[in-house]
Design a binder for these strands. Structure first.
Lengths: 201, 201
DNA sequence: CTCCTAATGTCTATCGCGTAGACACTTCCT
DNA sequence: AGGAAGTGTCTACGCGATAGACATTAGGAG
């Protein structure tokens, strides 16, 4: 298992990983728009021609980076729900835990939300990805079975979670993963009764 | 300028940089002795054969890593003193500043001093490298020109500086570079009167 | 506005690094 | 004693990285 790779567990191209890495660091250094292709290949020690073997342009690279990271975030929770497979319950914190630990593992990437001139679409697609996970992979039960629109409920809790995540990142991961997860759990307990996880295995 | 490279400003091999990077991360993860060559190449996404193209064994890689980093530390201060070239005075903090900023820039590597089962020789050669810089590149004047053995004086101040550095690293770089440098300067002022820098240009 | 420089995107020919895989040997586990 | 995992060496091969030219576009300075 290669811990240096970016994103999900899929087989990935080494060179492309390095180009993505370079993009991340250069965005932090000078902002997305100021980054040139020369910068990227120079930073990653490749020839400019090599870049075009792998990507069409900077946007193509940026999209691949964002896609792979958010895809990895989804995969970190578990396989998407497949109708017909059994649903089983896990303890409350397990799913959030895997999201949190994924973000922490790739904090080098997720720190990009601290920058204004950053990866295009990051600020919109990151929370959307969390919402997608909540929608497709989690099943909630509200306290005392208060009847609510579950779509709204998931929207509400997903963005609440996103807010916590964002703050955690912005404050430089001051709290440990464990402490942070515990806070998330405690907050969840104020309005979520049970927490199921749709998944295979 | 490639910021991702490890160590000094010399031209370096891309693959070797990645192997070094992998070694650093694996030492932190499982300790130097537990790291295998398979681990390294797997982590850096190379074939095992590739490793032997560049290095004889793990020790060879470890030595290259340490050598390149300490060499880079020396180079960061300036070129070694060449007899006949003019000596000029700089403000007190400039030389320490470059050492500090180098260490901070490559903190990923220098954090290795926090680990017990870490790079062989790191704990001895790191302070020695600082001492070497003090000996070869700096000229001190003690307060009120108190007569002292300058070799001892440099040994004393170099290891004092090393102690501060070590503590700074161990506490996770809590203080900013600027704050830390200022503390070093203030402590230096208690016993150093002037501070010259042997160098070219 | 015009000039000039840097960056971009495309293409080609070439080179060499990284690859897979086999083999013998050692170490360590149980 | 047996087996699994790691090590070091070697060979042949393919593809990925390289240098460099070229036309075009974008942006900044005067």
């Amino acid at each position: 298992m290669n811990d240096e790779q970016i994103g999900s567990s899929k087989q990935r191209n080494r060179t492309e990983e390095h180009l993505k890495l370079a993009l991340i660091e250069l965005i932090k250094e000078k902002g997305y728009h100021a980054v040139t292709i020369k910068d990227i290949v120079s930073h990653a020690s490749y020839n400019r021609s090599t870049f075009y073997i792998h990507y069409r342009d900077k946007i193509d690279l940026a999209e691949d980076l964002l896609d792979s990271m958010l895809e990895g975030l989804e995969d970190s929770v578990g396989k998407p729900y497949v109708p017909g497979q059994k649903i089983y319950t896990v303890n409350l914190h397990a799913p959030s835990l895997s999201i949190v630990s994924y973000i922490y593992k790739y904090r080098n990437f997720f720190e990009l939300i601290n920058y204004t001139d950053t990866l295009p679409e990051l600020h919109t697609r990151f929370p959307q990805a969390i919402l997608k996970i909540y929608k497709e992979q989690f099943v909630f039960e509200t306290i005392n079975d208060i009847p609510v629109n579950m779509d709204y409920f998931k929207l509400y809790t997903a963005y609440g979670f996103y807010g916590l995540i964002q703050n955690w990142i912005k404050t430089g991961f001051k709290e440990s993963q464990e402490v942070f997860i515990q806070e998330v759990i405690n907050l969840s307990k104020t309005h979520i009764h049970s927490f199921e996880y749709k998944g295979s295995k």
